[in-house]
């Protein structure tokens, strides 16, 4: 446990040198999306969704989506480059860390990044007055859990490939459909059978839970199952990542 904390500490020191560049986009991105989608597109959706203003309905979806984007961003190119180009993981493997420490520490840093971007988005959303309930703070742990559910398996994937063209494939065939069909922009009921994409992949569960939180609606027992389902993705992804990392680092 402490050994993964050392690894997290390393990533935080590293981040201290680059955070300025990412801080701006962390704040500006939600602002632009709010303005573009909420005010622009929302102007046409006068009826609202499920009896709520479109912007208010949309915001929690955007937050969950931003959390997942950050998780994907941190678990693809950085992981590949730590194996292929910078060899950071190999340096760590020579120290008295176990493979699980290396994976867990880096994953913890990814969740820290997810929390930062979800937190920034939440602030902007509060400023626009789109949060209906104090339960909105629950969006933070929900974002972290959704981030984990995505980052852990993607980390395993990134550790299994040696060229970034495979990452482009992941973006095109997994991340893009997931972003479109996970009820971020419109209710999944209008998807027909494609709805199952939303049920199977992690993002929709995060969107649905975040929406319940910011709108102050109880998710009921379904909410618990969704939490467990996300946790399941995270746990399976983590154990797969540890195995994939082991294959690369201990040969």
């Amino acid at each position: 446990m402490t050994a993964s904390a050392y690894v997290l500490e390393y990533h935080l020191v590293n981040y201290r040198r680059t955070w300025r560049a990412s801080a701006l986009s962390t704040l500006v991105l939600p602002l632009l999306t709010m303005l573009g989608f909420g005010i622009g597109v929302g102007g046409y959706v006068t009826a609202g969704v499920d009896g709520v203003d479109y912007l208010d309905w949309l915001v929690p979806g955007l937050i969950a989506s931003a959390a997942v984007q950050t998780a994907i961003g941190e678990s693809t190119w950085p992981v590949l480059s730590y194996f292929e180009w910078l060899k950071v993981y190999f340096a760590q493997a020579a120290a008295p860390l176990r493979v699980a420490d290396i994976v867990t520490g880096h994953l913890a840093f990814m969740l820290f990044r997810v929390l930062l971007s979800a937190g920034a988005f939440l602030l902007v959303a509060a400023f626009f007055g789109t949060l209906h309930s104090l339960w909105a703070v629950a969006v933070l742990p929900i974002s972290a859990l959704t981030g984990l559910a995505v980052a852990a398996p993607v980390m395993a994937y990134s550790a299994s490939v040696t060229s970034d063209s495979y990452l482009a494939i992941l973006m095109r065939f997994a991340v893009l459909p997931m972003s479109l069909f996970s009820g971020v922009f419109f209710p999944i009921e209008s998807l027909g059978l494609l709805r199952w994409v939303a049920y199977v992949l992690p993002l929709w569960h995060g969107v649905d839970l975040s929406r319940a939180a910011t709108l102050g609606v109880s998710p009921g027992w379904d909410g618990l199952w969704q939490l467990l389902y996300l946790l399941g993705w995270g746990a399976a992804g983590w154990s797969l990542a540890v195995r994939r990392f082991g294959k690369r680092l201990v040969v």
Binding site: T2, A3, Y6, V7, E9, Y10, V13, N14, R17, T18, L86, K87, V88, F90, A91, Q92, A94, A95, P96, L97
Partner: peptide, 30 residues
């Protein structure tokens, strides 16, 4: 924990300073 390893290809942290390369690595040893 009791070995020092100097690999064939340098795997230093290019984003970090010279000093930070040593201090962050030292932390891995607690």
């Amino acid at each position: 924990a009791r070995l020092g390893v100097c690999p064939q290809l340098d795997n230093l942290d290019t984003e970090l300073t010279v000093r930070e390369n040593l201090t962050t690595y030292a932390r891995f040893f607690g």
